[in-house]
Nucleic acid binder design. Structure first.
Length: 912
RNA sequence: GCGGGCGUGUUGAAAUGGUAGACAAGCCAGACUUAGGAUCUGGUGCUUCACGGCGUGAGGGUUCGAGUCCCUCCGCCCGCACCA
């Protein structure tokens, strides 16, 4: 009987669906294990073979953990709000909900073919009102909370109001609070709310007609679409993520994530410990203090000028009348630059002198104040002290504008470039002279604090998240405006659903698309017109999976107490500074308010590598319709053309299929080598335009889902990026066929209950040990190899099929190749799904050999091997080896210095 | 520039400091076949007729022993980037 994967796979996939095999419930009698994939955005292009890589790995772990007796939560859903569906809607008029639904259906059918063990009853879609009710709910909670720095956590805003009323808080006195109007009170509270509205400089993307978050912008272009992004002042909803900076940083230490990912987050959070210092300034006879931030207080004696950010509010008051025109012209020029231009012009330093001067608080020097866009308004105080000798940016500026450079470290050479390293001995620095830089930094901080010139200060790079998008296809804000004051729509009225509108374009007067919904009001009050960004819906979805149909709460305390957090999260590294920060923030916020029991959502995180495409090329001789094979192309002038990889097998072109592919190739002629047309190849991003997309459906058609699953794992380490290459997929397919044949004698299924031999048991238990170890280390490629070795070994023994060996092997292979294993499991006479069988017990003693092979080396060079009984002790091994005839040759004319015996492995004899 | 990672056959890749290249692909030879993109067997790092020698980006170090640990350099990939 042949291995007929087609009928097996469709049979078991429909059985799993009918029986709801993978439906999961809270079950306190079993330990829980929560395995989560980053849910996909259902794009119009469907899945390619890269997408399922992580899903296959997580499915293997899920199925493995089930075999190990865990109650496994393994859900899937869709991140369904987003820009592409909306842009498609603008182009075609089709409602983004329809587009999304169609795409989801396609994704689902593709996912189903691969045989995942998801509990589909727990599916969530972020665009479903029953789901986004809870996104809106969380927003209202954030609106209704403030971050109490003394407690380091979020608290209800009512507690802050109580403080204002009784004792006052910060600059708000009880009297002032009581006297304030509704609008004024709202404005005051906005300075504290976790979700707040405020004016800020935002990344405005004209091409998309919306604001973007920092992680949605790369190199000054929008990540989606690649449109230019400019800085613009706008009033936007924001989340006070920055309040959590320190907690987000600190708890990274306890997470089981890769170092590189944690490091990325640390950089993004950007903790910087330095000093804030006051410099007195004078401008047209007026004087005022200016606060700067520096991490190098030790370099104060080298300050030769100061610089303000163009957007700094200090600029007007620090501009001398005589310099006003010049400064304003500069500000105007800066404003016109896009973010991209500012970045690309890094080396073109620009700036303008304000006419004002500052006084160095330590040396008393009088130094000029400049304005330049190399200083950022958003970081520190927007003003710096410039130390050209020891900061490369200040150095470039000083060189360009011919400002003095004072070296502060003995022996450093600043004639060509600045000396940025924090090492050496200080000089030209008053009381710091002679100190090591590291000590000088501390001494200078102490000095500044003691003299009242400034204070230690920690700065963070993490910005608050801009939460408004001027778009249609997102969660509406549950906010209405009463006399211009934003007010929450009551929780009991959630979800506030997205209204239908006539067109998805922004309206002519620049309002977001929702501006078209004229009769969309709350009791006659206008509702917020912007919608929430993509990360809103994905920030707490892992919590919703725990209790997805609950209408009363995001997640019930019972379900949350059982499932707690995600034990294993698998997904791409591209979410490092977006989703994975926002989710952690969101979770910590809910934790502060007592809605969830864990402070961190994702205990272990694994980033699967990207699967790149492998493109094939044909070479057309210029001016002809003749194509020359790769090896011969150097003799001709050719054009490289992408050929669809479905026309190519192992780099050999199917010339007939190529002719039929497109009309322009119908009359193609070929210059062959060895009767074949060999194509060139290259590793590129998998994309339609390069004709290198491999669809998992095709692989399932030719080889089956089990082969696809095994092959994706066999390809190499999970975390590594690698090109998709079908060379080698036959090997995996062959393995499954061999495995299948182990159960049959010719055409009859004939597994016997006979007792296994010692050799068979050894093969089995080696495999058990290897699989357990490898899955814990996410080394799935070596696990697959271990199966291949085990099957090869069994075949080599030429014994009859035995239940005691084959049954545990079916169980162990089932996480990797579930369909074939279900089928064999049933043939073995079981009624229950193999998914809930018990993983075999590992008996290490059965894998131990009676004898073992020692590598015998002299001075570290292996000369021969010796088979010796396992039981021999070190001395006996030494004696036995030295007595062996092969050893005589190497012992001739030398004396033994020492002998090192590594039990079971090595005998090294050191001779002289 | 800063941070993280990597560098092993023809290819994908294995190797708790202990016989480098497991497993798979490819290639070569053979068996069974009318046939084979089926199946099975054997071979396959380089070099040498052979004994042997040489081999994990380059160089140095630690060690009885280094792909693995340490230092320097080279190359590649990823992330961040005027963050004071």
């Amino acid at each position: 009987m042949d291995y007929d994967f087609k009928s097996i796979e469709s049979k078991w996939q429909s059985r799993w669906a009918e029986n709801k095999t993978f439906k999961t419930e809270v079950d306190p009698s079993k330990p829980k294990y929560y395995v989560l994939d980053m849910f996909p955005y259902p794009s119009g292009a469907g899945l390619h073979v890269g997408h399922p890589l992580g899903y296959i790995a997580s499915d293997i772990v899920s199925r493995y953990k089930r075999l190990k007796g865990f109650n496994v939560l393994h859900p899937m859903g869709y991140d369904a709000f987003g820009l592409p569906a909306e842009q498609y809607a603008i182009k075609t008029g089709q409602h983004p909900g329809i587009t999304t639904q169609n795409n989801i259906a396609r994704y689902r059918s593709q996912l189903d073919r691969i045989g995942f063990s998801y509990d589909w009853d727990r599916e969530v879609r972020t665009c479903d009102p029953a789901y986004y009710k809870w996104t809106q709910w969380a927003f209202l909670k954030m609106f209704d909370s403030w971050f109490d720095p003394s407690a380091g956590k979020a608290r209800p805003i009512s507690e802050l109001v109580a403080k204002f009323e009784s004792t006052g808080y910060e600059d708000v006195t009880p009297e002032a609070w009581k006297a304030a109007s509704e609008k004024e009170k709202s404005d005051i509270l906005m300075r504290y709310r976790i979700a707040y509205q405020g004016e800020t400089s935002v990344n405005w993307c004209e091409g998309l007609g919306t604001v973007l978050a920092n992680d949605e912008v790369k190199d000054g272009l929008s990540v989606r679409g690649g449109y230019p992004v400019v800085q613009k002042k706008m009033t936007q909803w924001q989340l006070r993520v920055s309040a959590y900076a320190s907690r987000l940083l600190d708890s990274l230490d306890k997470l089981d994530w890769t170092d590189s990912l944690k490091e990325m987050q640390r950089n993004w959070i950007g903790k910087s410990e330095g000093t804030e210092m006051e410099f007195m300034t004078e401008c047209d006879g007026r004087s005022m203090p200016v606060t700067i931030f520096t991490t190098r207080a030790d370099t104060v004696f080298g300050v030769t000028f100061m610089v303000l950010a163009p957007e700094s509010p200090l600029v007007p008051s620090l501009t001398a009348a005589a310099n006003k025109a010049e400064v304003e012209a500069y500000l105007e020029a800066v404003k016109k630059k896009t973010e991209r231009e500012r970045i690309s012009q890094t080396k073109n330093v620009s700036g303008v002198f304000t006419g004002a001067y500052g006084i160095n608080p330590l040396s008393g020097e009088r130094i000029p104040i400049w304005v330049s866009d190399y200083v950022l308004a958003g970081y520190g105080t927007g003003a710096i002290m410039a130390v050209p000798a020891h900061d490369s940016r200040d150095y470039a500026f000083a060189r360009k504008f011919k400002l003095p450079i004072i070296p502060l470290i003995e022996g450093c050479d600043v004639s060509e470039q600045s000396f940025d390293a924090k090492e050496g001995v200080m000089c030209n620095s008053g009381f710091l002279n002679g100190m090591q830089v590291k000590d000088a930094i501390e001494a200078a901080k102490d000095y500044v604090e003691a003299k009242g010139l400034g204070r230690r200060k920690t700065n963070w790079r993490l910005r608050d998240a801009i939460f408004s998008r001027q778009r249609y296809w997102g969660e509406p804000f549950p906010i209405y405006y009463k006399d211009g004051v934003p007010c929450p729509i009551p929780e009991s009225e959630l979800p506030l659903t997205l209204p239908e509108i006539s067109s998805y374009k922004p309206s002519a007067d620049g309002e977001p698309p929702l501006g078209r919904a004229k009769d969309w009001t709350w009791h006659g009050y206008p509702i917020e017109k912007s919608t929430m960004p993509g990360f809103a819906g994905s920030s707490a979805y892992y919590l919703r999976y725990m209790d997805p149909r609950n209408d009363e709460a995001l997640v019930s305390p019972e379900a949350n107490a059982y499932w707690k957090d995600v034990d294993l999260y698998i997904g791409g590294t591209e979410h490092a500074t977006g989703h994975l920060i926002y989710s952690r923030f969101w979770n910590k916020f809910l934790y502060d308010l007592g809605y969830v029991c864990e402070d961190e959502p994702f205990r272990k995180l694994v980033n699967q590598g990207m699967i790149q495409g492998r493109s094939n090329f044909v070479y057309r001789i210029v001016g002809t319709n003749t194509y020359v094979s790769l090896g011969l192309k150097d003799g001709y002038q050719t054009t490289e053309i992408h050929a669809d990889i479905s026309l190519v097998h192992d780099d050999v072109l199917d010339t007939e299929a190529f002719k039929a592919w497109m009309p322009e190739f119908a009359n193609a002629e070929f210059i062959l080598e060895d009767g074949k047309y060999i194509c060139g190849s290259a590793v590129e991003k998998m994309s339609k335009s390069m004709f290198n997309v491999v669809n998992p459906d095709q692989v399932c058609d030719t080889y089956g889902a089990d082969t696809l699953r095994l092959y994706e794992m066999f390809l190499g380490p999970l975390e590594q990026s690698k090109p998709w290459d079908t060379k080698g997929i036959d090997g995996v397919n062959r393995f499954l066929k061999k495995f299948w044949r182990l159960f049959f004698d010719r055409d009859t299924f004939c597994v016997s209950d006979e007792a296994p031999t010692k050799d068979e048991l050894k093969i089995l238990h080696k495999l058990i040990g290897k699989e357990q170890e490898d899955i814990d280390n996410f080394s799935f490629n070596t696990t697959v190899s271990a199966f291949m070795i085990a099957v090869n070994d069994l075949v080599a023994l030429k014994t009859a099929p035995k239940r005691a060996i084959l049954e545990p092997m079916v169980v162990m292979l089932s996480p990797f190749a579930p369909h074939i294993c279900e089928e064999l499991w049933e043939q073995l006479g079981h009624k229950e799904s193999v998914a809930f069988a018990t993983f075999p017990e590992y008996d290490k003693s059965l894998t131990v050999e009676d004898s073992c092979t020692y590598a015998v080396s002299f001075n570290g060079k292996t000369r021969f091997t010796a088979d010796l009984p396992k039981s021999m002790d070190k001395e006996a091994v030494e004696a036995a080896v030295l007595a062996m005839p092969q050893a005589a040759k190497w012992l001739e004319g030398v004396s033994i210095v020492k002998v090192i015996v590594v039990p079971g492995k090595i005998v090294n004899i050191v001779v002289r």
